[in-house]
């Protein structure tokens, strides 16, 4: 089991007033799954992703990653896990400005404590998997939105993590670029990567195999997608 969450909770306490952002989240995610976390804004989907992605700590419940209890880990240990096991894709791409595509993708390797070896090959392989190797020497500002997000995906892949978290990855993209990005995620899923996608759009969410629906900090449904969308086919329609 890759991810095990049991009664996971996040409650913000501000001057004695407690505001729950996440309550009683219990679920499991297997290696290789493609899961959408869906819900309107304020539903707690981002909070859940922050906790699952080790960006934030829960205030209650249990969270095991690959069978390991991560609640008690130190900041440094969490940073190491994020570096080795997790890749992030953000809505706003978050590429470093005035920095080349290559260096952007290289970023996680800078903080990799295991291997400083064959950096170049790994960066180029990651760029190749998103068809961006021809832009390696470009600056991030010279890219289109879709290209930026593909570079961001390459950055998430470069350390060969087990899980990719994508937070509204198509939110800033036109529909064609959005489909391209979804196609990459589906391809990665087929190759065995675990992908957790956070979105508020049903259309995007239905590219996954499974959807966790959230409302007011709680998981309200957890089911497989009956009519899964495939970005390959939709892409053809768009053309």
């Amino acid at each position: 089991m890759l991810i095990e969450a049991k009664r996971l909770a996040k409650i913000y306490a501000n001057e004695g007033i407690e505001t729950p952002a996440l309550l009683d989240a219990t679920f499991q995610i297997d290696q290789g799954e493609f899961v959408s976390i869906m819900g309107p804004s304020g539903s707690g989907k981002s909070t859940l992703m922050h906790i699952l992605g080790l960006l934030d700590r829960s205030t209650g419940g249990e969270y095991r990653l690959e069978g390991r209890d991560v609640v008690s880990l130190s900041d440094d240990e969490l940073a190491r896990l994020r570096n080795e096991e997790i890749g992030f894709v953000f809505q706003a791409f978050n590429l470093l400005p005035r920095t080349s595509v290559f260096e952007n993708v290289e970023l996680p390797l800078l903080y990799d404590r295991n291997s400083a070896e064959n950096t170049k090959e790994r960066v180029m392989a990651a760029l190749k998997s998103v068809n961006m190797e021809h832009r390696a020497s470009f600056f991030s500002s010279q890219l289109s939105g879709g290209e930026k997000q593909r570079v961001a995906i390459a950055r998430a892949l470069v350390n060969n993590p087990k899980i990719i978290f994508a937070d509204e990855p198509t939110g800033n993209l036109d529909s064609k670029s959005g489909l391209q990005v979804m196609r990459i995620f589906q391809k990665l899923s087929e190759e065995g990567k675990t992908i957790i996608l956070v979105t508020h759009e049903t259309f995007t969410a239905e590219h996954a195999k499974r959807i966790l629906r959230m409302m007011d900090g709680r998981i309200v449904s957890d089911e497989s997608v009956a009519n899964r969308r495939f970005a390959d086919q939709e892409n053809m329609l768009l053309k």
Partner: peptide, 16 residues
């Protein structure tokens, strides 16, 4: 602040 957040998200430790 976003750049710092990003670096931390991809594995930079506070000390680094």
């Amino acid at each position: 602040v976003r750049e710092i957040g990003l670096r931390k998200a991809v594995g930079a430790r506070p000390g680094e």
